[in-house]
Each structure stands twice: as structure tokens, then as C-alpha cells.
């Protein structure tokens, strides 16, 4: 069992020193950003032009849904959010610290990425995980 939490997804990086961050892979030929490491760009077809890039921790809400029905064990309701990060990547996650009511959610509302325990979820070996969430940006 790992003493440090493991990343909930491969594009969440937990450095030994410093804060966790989300990592993307940008195509030098066309600028498209992907969340997975890859050799060929799906947008323009360029080969071996990808480089890893640290994604922005701020962005705006592009689209959303309030989820009331999910699988057993998943706490509802919660807000599923599609967020455009400021550097052009789009990431999906839970929008937290907002009451899940349509009246409280606005398109393009400024959000920031925050990192925390993966809602207490553990794998078979008992490892804890670090995940990311979105919350309204303050100030």
C-alpha cells in the first residue's frame, strides 16, 4: 500500500515537491491539447510533435448537468461540469461548493481547480487517491 495518495487519473500529477497539477499534451504543429500522452495528433495528424504541458488551474464553466440518479454508492445530487481551462484544454469534473440548483449555476462562471481526497474511495489494496474538483473562483 502506498503511503502517498495515488492520482485518480493519469493526467493528475503529484510531484514530490510542490502542488499537484493537471497535465496536458500540446501539439506543436496545431496547438491542440490532449489529456493523454500520444504520438500522433488527432486534430492535424502530426507525428512526434507533442509535449507535456502544465494546465491552468483556472477556467470557466462551459456546460453542466445536475446528477440526481447514479450508481449505488454515488452520493447525489452533484454537479457534473465541463470546464474550459484558460489555456485551451477542456476538462470534466465535479463542481463543488455550489448548492446543486440550476439557479446557482451560470454559464461561463469563473472556476478554479482544487485538489483533495477522492471522496474516500479506495482501491482493492486500500490505497487512497487524490482527485481534482472545480469550485467557484473567489476574488
Amino acid at each position: 500500500m502506498s503511503t502517498k495518495p495515488l492520482p485518480a487519473v493519469a493526467y493528475l500529477k503529484i510531484p514530490d515537491e510542490g502542488d499537484p497539477y493537471l497535465e496536458g499534451h500540446r501539439c506543436d504543429a496545431c496547438g491542440a491539447i490532449f489529456l493523454d500522452a500520444r504520438r500522433v495528433c488527432a486534430k492535424c495528424g502530426a507525428r512526434d510533435r507533442m509535449h507535456a504541458t502544465r494546465l491552468s488551474n483556472t477556467g470557466t464553466l462551459y456546460s453542466w448537468s445536475i446528477v440526481y440518479r447514479s450508481f449505488p454508492g454515488v452520493e447525489v445530487p452533484y454537479i457534473s461540469a465541463v470546464v474550459d481551462l484558460d489555456d485551451g484544454a477542456t476538462v470534466k469534473g465535479n463542481l463543488i461548493n455550489v448548492e446543486p440548483d440550476p439557479a446557482n449555476i451560470a454559464f461561463d462562471m469563473p472556476v478554479e481547480v482544487t485538489y483533495g481526497d477522492a471522496l474516500g474511495r479506495r482501491d482493492r489494496d486500500g490505497n487512497a487517491y487524490l482527485s481534482y474538483f472545480f469550485q467557484p473562483r473567489t476574488g
Partner: peptide, 23 residues
């Protein structure tokens, strides 16, 4: 990965995916 992602990283259920497309 080692843990379920539904409800952790947003929702991937079909009703949610099409809700977001509608929104």
C-alpha cells in the same frame, strides 16, 4: 484506474452526457 470515477470526475452516464449536450 483503481477506483470508480462516476460521481468523482463528473458523470459519464448517458442521461448526463446528453444533459450536458442540451445545456
Amino acid at each position: 484506474s483503481g477506483i470508480p470515477r462516476e460521481g468523482l470526475l463528473g458523470s459519464g452516464t448517458m442521461p448526463s452526457v446528453f444533459a450536458e449536450a442540451g445545456m
